[in-house]
């Protein structure tokens, strides 16, 4: 069970973008019927140029692009939701923008219903990878060779 830190909108949007699309869809379905939305910018897929840094810490260089889908929508109450999500899944972008808008109207309700479960998923996935990595960490040991005897 996650604690409930006061999330910034930046944190919320990041969590939604990185959520597994099926999982986000399921959590939204649990909320009941979706509100009518108006598109301010319908979902559009494009690319974002990913930049690295020379020697990891130096000046930026262009590594290559990544697909990203973005959209902006408005709820009947007037809240505007934005999404920029990795990949080409327009339904996922719509859901991320929808929850961004819903969160602005009801931060606590969305935290409990959607964000906390997503954070648990993210943490579980991270721990599963980290635990596998930990098992492949090398523990060096030195053999006593007894040359001095």
């Amino acid at each position: 069970m996650s604690d409930s830190p006061a999330l910034s909108r930046k944190d919320v949007m990041g969590l939604l973008a990185k959520a597994a699309p099926d999982r986000l869809a399921m959590l939204i379905a649990n909320l009941g019927p979706e509100p009518e939305i108006a598109w301010l910018r319908p979902p559009e897929t494009g690319t974002v140029m990913l930049r690295g840094r020379i020697g990891a810490t130096g000046a930026p260089f262009n590594l290559g692009e990544m697909t990203v889908t973005r959209c902006v929508l408005r709820l009947p109450g007037g809240k505007v939701g934005h999404a920029h999500v990795q990949g080409r899944d327009k339904a996922h972008a719509r859901r991320a923008a929808l929850v961004d808008a819903l969160w602005q109207a009801d931060p606590q309700g969305i935290e409990t219903a959607i964000l906390a479960p997503l954070r648990d998923d993210t943490e579980a996935a991270r721990r599963a990878r980290a635990a596998r990595a930990a098992a492949t960490r090398v523990d060096f040991f030195t053999l006593v060779r007894g040359e001095d005897e």
Binding site: E44, T45, G46, T47, V48, M49, L50, R51, G52, R53, A56, T57, P60, N62, L63, E65, M66, T67, V68, R70, H84
Partner: peptide
């Protein structure tokens, strides 16, 4: 065929 939406902040590999 895709529009360029922007460039990322430099990736923090550390």
């Amino acid at each position: 065929t895709l529009p360029r939406l922007g460039a990322s902040l430099p990736l923090d590999t550390a």
